[in-house]
Write a protein that binds this DNA or RNA. Structure first.
Lengths: 338, 338
DNA sequence: GAACGCTTTGCAAGCGCTTACATTTTGTAG
DNA sequence: CTACAAAATGTAAGCGCTTGCAAAGCGTTC
């Protein structure tokens, strides 16, 4: 906001018509005579007029702002998807407001409130499991909301995502197929993070189903950072018998594990295999390349934008969509050495 | 915006006071009696009231929104800095609206307009060299603007950044110190990108100053992507005499070069050294680790927030600050092999 | 050339909030 | 108990925009 900004009235005066006409010129040009429209456009250009957002929002009760709360901006996990989401929105002249929650439900709630009070017409959220209080707020306000990065067959909510549990099971099964029986899992922190929890659950389920005793599988939960992953590695490597493969809850953890392993002189996958999850761009640049679960981020972002906009414009018309993941094989997973 | 949202009047009615009192409760609590304040707070909680942004913006002519336009969200270059910037802002209850320009000045202008029309009180922009038209618009609207990632001793603009040219010269000098005389440069596209241009200029200047004939130095400009970097590598490697070191304009390019080199069977730094610029987090996870210029992103983001807010609240009070870069030595730069 | 319908434009009432100013309440001194 | 100042609250006028409705302009038709 800014004292120098010309207003509708300024333009009206400059063009010699009423404010209403200017407004119509902008919002429904076909309801205005060609000649006036030209004159008005001219005045707009000359004055450098841009509609005042507050005024417009107040009058239309629409902001054309969509909010998104992602767990973190500090790593690349959500970057591509959000980028795609935004591109799709801007095609429709909708602006994206981004908040980040640092994986903290309280902070997520705060961000949601900020977004709403800034007038967001709809919300993109990551995951689905949030505190009672947050859900109540969302329901009470009837804000169109769409959840990404997960999928549930719940007709009352909108999802554009995939089945973390199934994907987790897939990658675990692959590791076991390679012959590993002695496993460890380094997961993200599951509390308040359904994606992490589901992935872990899927892995455990698959491991159990293959006849491996889950009691023997070390499971560590830790924050998503290279450093935390390195510490987790130290814990795991000290165990006996030493695992031959570590399943990581995401690629950041996996890269941290590999890095630590190599700097301690272990070879990957010679001494130890590592798998990731997400397929962020580093995954192909670590040495060895990371065998991981590819998440269709870009597609997810685009589709999420479409469905969320649909839901905003015609409540009830947005559809949930389940996307598929698949495993990308690179060098970090190999057979165990006897 | 949303039909169900309770308004000030609703709260006023619920609390049995006037709307003005509610407003005061929120904006200057000390001007309201303790007892009423409690009663009002109660009503607010009960109704789940959040102030309507449009109304507030209209009345105060302030949005408490700050806009930022970054060249890209798809890679990690700007992530940390923006994250720090946002954290600092939210400490002051200011919201960040992010746009990305894809390194295109026209698109940057469009994003700036969007941000302004959404009421941004101030703007964070990357770099300083923008088209006449953009600058005119900014000047006409008198929007407080701060430029990051570069520094110029221009008293009419605000900078929180560093000297790209000097940093470029530093890294070039280091490479030459290692004994390389046969160099190539893979730069970002300089047109419309002052950071890329300055880095390149600094490198060239240092190379010339060391008595190397610039005519012999291949300079390629390409987009910031692993793929483009790989293509640039192919061009360079085909030359004779083959360079013993490649200076990259940023880390994305450098990682792309290394990756391509290794997949073609070249050893780094054995056959060929590579240096980067920015020190994004992959830089330490490629093999070998990247010798690069460390940019104080987090510090830059924080400081930018402080100075921009100062400028918004008291025009003229924001200060430019120059930050320093330094070189991080990892494995990708070694002496040339005879 | 009067009557009609269509298109184009203007008028004016809000949208939800803040704030200068007016009014009421409360506290205090004499 | 009165008079007065200070504190607390209310009143009402916008902030810039959209939009339903009314008015005006204009081309047809009989």
């Amino acid at each position: 906001m800014n004292g120098n900004a010309p207003t509708l009235d300024d333009v009206a005066r400059a063009a010699g018509v009423s404010a209403a006409t200017i407004s119509r010129c902008i919002n429904s040009p076909d309801r205005v005579a060609e000649s006036t429209r030209r004159r008005v456009q001219d005045a707009i250009d000359r004055l450098g007029y841009t509609p005042n957002f507050g005024g417009r929002a107040l009058a239309t009760r629409r902001t054309n702002i969509v909010g998104a709360v992602i767990p973190s901006m500090a790593n690349a996990i959500f970057a591509e998807g959000i980028q795609a989401f935004q591109e799709e929105l801007s095609r429709e002249k909708v602006t994206l407001l981004i908040g980040s929650s640092n994986y903290d439900p309280d902070y997520e709630f705060e961000q949601i409130q900020t977004l709403i009070s800034h007038g967001a017409d709809g919300l993109l959220l990551v995951g689905s499991n949030r505190p009672e209080r947050t859900q109540r707020f969302l329901d009470a306000r009837r804000i169109p909301t769409l959840n990404v990065w997960c999928f549930q067959p719940d007709p009352d909510q909108l999802f554009v995502g995939f089945d973390n549990s199934r994907a987790g099971a897939d990658i675990a099964r692959l590791v076991i197929e390679y012959g590993h029986r002695n496993l460890a899992i380094v997961s993200g922190i599951c509390e308040g993070n359904d994606r992490a929890a589901d992935r872990l659950a899927g892995m455990k389920q698959a491991i159990g189903a293959e006849g491996i005793d889950l009691k023997q599988v070390t499971v560590l939960q830790t924050k998503y950072s290279f450093e935390h992953a390195a510490r987790a590695f130290d814990t795991i490597i000290a165990q006996s018998p030493r695992p031959t493969a570590i399943l990581a809850g995401n690629d950041v953890l996996a890269v941290g594990l590999i890095e630590r392993a190599r700097s301690l002189g272990f070879s990957v996958p010679g001494d130890l295999s590592v798998t990731g999850f997400d397929d962020i761009s580093v995954a192909q640049f670590v040495e060895p390349g990371l065998t991981t679960v590819r998440v269709p981020q870009v597609q997810m972002g685009q589709r999420a934008a479409e469905e969320l906009l649909a839901e905003i414009r015609h409540p009830g018309s947005g559809k949930s969509v389940e996307m598929l993941t698949h495993i990308i094989r690179r060098g970090s997973l190999g057979p165990p050495t006897a």
